[in-house]
C-alpha cells in the first residue's frame, strides 16, 4: 500500500499541467492551478491514466477529496461567498500549497 502524502486539512495546489496527445485525465481543466484543502483521503486506486490504455497492473495512487472555495475557482462567482466545490484528485496531480497564497494574487 502507498502511504498518502497529504492529510485532511492540508493546503494543496493542483498541478497546472496541460498534457496533450493520447491521454485520459481525471483532473478537470478548470481546477488545474487552483489551491484547496484536503477534505479526506479516499484510499489508493489504480491509476486511471494507465487503466485507460489497458495497463491493468497500473500502480495504485492515493486519491483525495479536495475542497475549494468557489470564489477562488471562478473570478465571476456570484453565489454565497462560503460556497465550495469538492473534487477527487489523485496524488500525482497535487503539490503542497505555497504558503503565501500566491494563487490569489493573480
Amino acid at each position: 500500500m502507498t502511504d498518502p502524502l497529504f492529510n485532511p486539512g492540508d493546503a494543496v495546489t493542483v498541478s497546472a499541467r496541460f498534457p496533450t496527445g493520447r491521454r485520459h485525465i481525471r483532473t478537470p481543466f478548470y481546477i488545474r492551478g487552483k489551491t484547496g484543502e484536503v477534505e479526506r483521503v479516499c484510499g489508493a486506486y489504480k491509476n486511471p491514466e494507465d487503466l485507460a490504455f489497458g495497463n491493468y497492473n497500473a500502480a495504485r495512487v492515493s486519491l483525495y477529496r479536495v475542497r475549494f472555495d468557489q470564489r477562488h475557482v471562478w473570478d465571476d462567482y456570484t453565489g454565497n461567498p462560503n460556497d465550495t466545490i469538492d473534487i477527487e484528485i489523485y496524488e500525482h496531480w497535487l503539490e503542497p500549497a505555497v504558503t503565501e497564497d500566491s494563487s490569489d494574487a493573480t
Binding site: 497546472a16 496533450t20 485525465i25 478537470p28 481543466f29 478548470y30 492551478g33 471562478w74
Partner: peptide, 14 residues
Amino acid sequence: MSDDIRQQHDMGGL
C-alpha cells in the same frame, strides 16, 4: 491558458 488544449468532454465551467 488557452482552450485548444482543453478536451471536448472536459466541459466544467463552460
